[in-house]
Design a protein around this nucleic acid. Structure first.
Lengths: 198, 198
DNA sequence: TATATATGTGAATCGATATTCACATCGAAT
DNA sequence: ATTCGATGTGAATATCGATTCACATATATA
């Protein structure tokens, strides 16, 4: 018999193990047996801590959401100018992807799942929320003249457009995630930047 | 007993039905029974025309590839200037997404599947190929001064970055896919455009 | 019309996976 | 130390989906 641990601790372990496994096999190929084995438990033990698989994935979404929101908070706290904020947020986002490669896979899987899925709707909400925050930063930059008079939500969408294809590229070449962000940012910046002389 | 049809015809029907189902339920939730039912066949009949599920998905990837390549060809044939080509390609790409909503789901699902999956590798190749073509157009534009001296593959990646988030947005609001492309293009264009007076 | 071949059917098999449950045991509180 | 509730175990169940196969039949061709 394995050591017994309080449910809070186990939940952490399960989530962590699940993230690891998602990174390796993709969300669809992760099953209760895998997760249990990864932390030396028996499948049925998982049900002491989660009501089922859905609840685990639900927690994974919470994890993603928290990571994204933390990045936003950090960015707002650290920088004051809109462009600096966007650049920092991009860097943090890329860094996050590097450390937690499970994140884009969770995202992709849920986005491609059944329309009516509760989990998908939740994931969409998380993204919408993130886009809102980015759009807010852009709006701020527009008001103080740092940024061109662009549509804020389109700017936010294209911001996402920098990081999403990165997640794809990272699957070809490992170094893509190191080389591209700077290049993408240059184009993006040029796209939204308001030259002083105009 | 249902009418018998030549295998070529059935293969078409199967692919078409599969695309429909993917659009509704996502690739992971489409199964042989579904596909068979959609064309009034019995599951085992499917195996007269495809060796198995993998082969069907393989054909779906071929379909996606063909659609993308057709767009590229059309674009190269129709326009000569790089910027015009990119704009046209974007429009066609958006149009394609509108008509075949299954495409992004196929893409997302395969990207989030197992690392070692043959199908995933194939999908990645398709994307890489598309990116190459876009990069080629950008390079051409760079050489004749239409486009800033940007990294072509980064430009191609951000081009993909316009359409990918669209596929996400389209799941919130149906009209997103009508409103955003123009706005995204404005930012992107501004990002890559080389002003004459610089 | 007869026959051969391609196509369709229904039942059966096989494996994977989530989930449940009765039972065992650990650890904390008394 | 005893007890009780929380945690872990192993076996069983249930479902779902892919695939196979022996058999049936439609369609083209001779």
């Amino acid at each position: 018999m394995v050591q017994k641990k309080p449910t809070e601790e186990r939940r952490e372990e399960i989530i962590t193990a699940a993230l690891d496994l998602v990174e390796q096999k993709g969300l669809d190929n992760v099953n209760i047996a895998n997760i249990a084995a990864a932390i030396n438990l028996v499948p049925s033990a998982i049900y002491r801590h989660f009501t089922g698989k859905e609840a685990i994935i639900d927690s994974l979404i919470d994890f993603v959401n928290k990571a994204l929101q933390d990045n936003v908070s950090y960015t707002l706290r650290t920088e004051t100018h809109a462009l600096a904020r966007l650049k920092l947020l991009l860097d943090r986002h890329v860094q996050l992807f590097k450390e937690q490669r499970a994140i884009p896979r969770i995202l992709f899987t849920l986005l491609s799942s059944d329309k009516e899925s509760v989990l998908k709707k939740k994931m969409l909400t998380v993204i919408a929320c993130y886009l809102d925050k980015v759009g807010f930063i852009i709006d701020q930059g527009r008001k103080n003249g740092e940024i061109e008079n662009i549509d804020a939500s389109a700017g936010a969408l294209l911001f996402l457009g920098m990081v999403q294809p990165l997640a794809i590229m990272a699957q070809f070449e490992d170094n893509a995630i190191d080389q591209y962000p700077e290049k993408l940012w240059n184009i993006y910046l040029h796209g939204i930047y308001r030259s002083k002389d105009e």
